[in-house]
Simulated scan of single mutants.
Amino acid sequence: MSLQSMEADREAFSKLIAGRELVVCAGSGGVGKTTTSAVIALHAAVEGRKVLVLTIDPAKRLANSLGVSSLENTPQRIPLDQFREHGLEPKGELWGMMLDMKQSFDHLVDRYSASEENRQEILNNKIYKYFSTSLAGTQEYAAAERLLELHTEEDYDLIVLDTPPTTHALDFLEAPVRLADAVENKALQWIYKPNLLTGRSGLGLFSAGTSYVVKALSKFTGTAFLDELAVFLRNFSSMFEGFRDRANQVRELLMGDKATFVVVTAPDPLQLDEALFFYEQLGTRQQVAVGGFVVNRVHPNWVPEAELKRPLVSLMNELEALEEPVGALSEETRRELAENLRENAAEFYTLALKDAGSLLRLREEIPQSIPMVQVPFFAQDIHSLEGLSRVREAIFGA
């Protein structure tokens, strides 16, 4: 890619972030998604916006990247003075949050339960404890509801969401509607909705017409389980009514003009394949527009091919001309060092060519209107404020 096209992509990516209220970073594991989320949030804060970076990735790497020991299930302000040591002058505010799925669902119960007694019965119910921690989709639903609440009720200019690896990110997108569909299922409604004759909820499961079914189930589950289930459904049914409405609000937010998705990947062919698959899934299955790509760990072409063909003696002479201790090495040691340097440069050149091919392939697979920014390969993993600053320079040209 030419320097001109790289600068154009950076400018387009910067405008994309500046014009959104929600940025969702998604991609496979191990491609730098958490770092990218932190960098996007940091850049927006430097530019003067009030920003929340929110992770639902249980790996908990975001706190270290932001220079704090830990993040909680509530927004925590990140001190920006520490960034000034690295030449940054933030004009806005930066907040961080590590989403705890169980606490988030408990928060929903606190918010929407009918009464204090109803709230306590739900929280203490064994079925609820399984429902809120282990049942597929419930945790992603809680995360989606929390995101909606933070966006609509807090005064952040931008929320950057760091999602788990791609399959879970798709679960996150689909969970609100799936859970709402389950709640509206006729069989489940038959269990928890009030009986037309008695007006009492939960009786569908224990009516005379279902006594045989109950007896059969109790042989496998025990009557205690059925009692717990009845209590759970009776108490939780008051919360079911708003599931569909809030699920639709989440979808509208994620699919609207205020939000954009950024796919994070690396030039490795397998990771690139997964990124392109996710890009297609977002468009066809989710009908969500991807605003940009970030390609991390790209090997730059540091050494021209002509340099790799220079005679070994020429490199040895340059080493000899250096100051001590390199210049004082013996001829045999300098030869060995020169051979190792040239071999390393050749391997790096091969990796750079391979990565350039991956970038070209990605550029051909996505529309030209979608910016594709790249971050060079660094010798060490990014887990410091200085590292974030270097990545920000690569992505935004800051």
Rank of each mutant, 00 (worst) to 15 (best):
301 N>W: 09
199 G>Q: 06
320 E>R: 10
231 V>I: 11
307 E>P: 00
278 F>A: 01
181 D>A: 13
184 E>P: 05
297 R>L: 01
100 D>K: 09
81 D>G: 11
139 Q>E: 12
149 E>N: 02
191 I>H: 14
21 E>T: 10
241 E>D: 10
210 T>A: 07
35 T>N: 05
216 A>F: 12
291 G>K: 12
305 E>P: 01
86 H>A: 02
265 T>M: 00
60 K>V: 08
343 E>Q: 03
202 G>M: 05
69 S>N: 03
24 V>M: 02
317 N>W: 13
162 D>Y: 00
215 K>Q: 15
191 I>D: 12
70 S>Y: 05
316 M>E: 14
322 L>C: 08
266 A>N: 06
254 L>H: 03
324 E>F: 03
315 L>D: 01
34 T>E: 06
96 G>M: 09
187 A>K: 12
49 R>W: 00
396 F>P: 04
105 F>P: 07
380 Q>H: 13
250 V>G: 09
45 A>W: 03
117 E>A: 10
95 W>T: 13
353 L>P: 10
141 Y>R: 11
226 L>T: 11
357 G>C: 05
204 G>V: 07
323 E>T: 11
177 V>Q: 15
27 G>Y: 07
336 E>K: 01
77 R>V: 06
274 E>R: 06
371 P>F: 00
44 A>R: 00
357 G>T: 05
101 M>R: 05
157 D>H: 09
205 L>D: 01
277 F>A: 11
307 E>W: 08
250 V>C: 11
112 Y>P: 02
350 T>F: 01
249 Q>W: 09
16 L>P: 00
2 S>P: 03
351 L>E: 11
304 P>K: 15
261 F>R: 06
207 S>L: 10
267 P>T: 08
311 P>W: 08
98 M>P: 01
306 A>W: 07
47 E>K: 15
387 G>I: 14
42 L>T: 06
258 K>Y: 01
225 F>H: 02
281 Q>H: 11
155 D>A: 08
305 E>I: 02
202 G>Q: 06
338 A>D: 02
332 E>Q: 15
165 P>Q: 13
245 D>I: 05
390 R>W: 08
153 E>I: 03
16 L>A: 04
195 N>L: 00
157 D>A: 13
76 Q>T: 14
21 E>D: 03
208 A>C: 14
6 M>H: 07
95 W>S: 00
391 V>Y: 10
283 G>N: 08
363 R>M: 01
9 D>E: 06
118 N>A: 08
284 T>V: 04
397 G>L: 02
30 G>S: 07
277 F>R: 14
202 G>R: 14
217 L>G: 10
356 A>Y: 02
23 V>L: 05
24 V>G: 01
274 E>T: 12
140 E>I: 12
324 E>H: 07
143 A>Y: 03
203 L>M: 12
208 A>I: 14
83 F>Q: 14
244 R>G: 12
132 S>Q: 03
199 G>F: 04
83 F>D: 10
358 S>F: 01
363 R>V: 05
138 T>F: 04
98 M>K: 10
383 H>T: 12
223 T>I: 14
380 Q>L: 13
239 M>K: 04
200 R>V: 14
178 R>N: 08
354 K>H: 12
22 L>F: 10
116 E>A: 07
384 S>K: 10
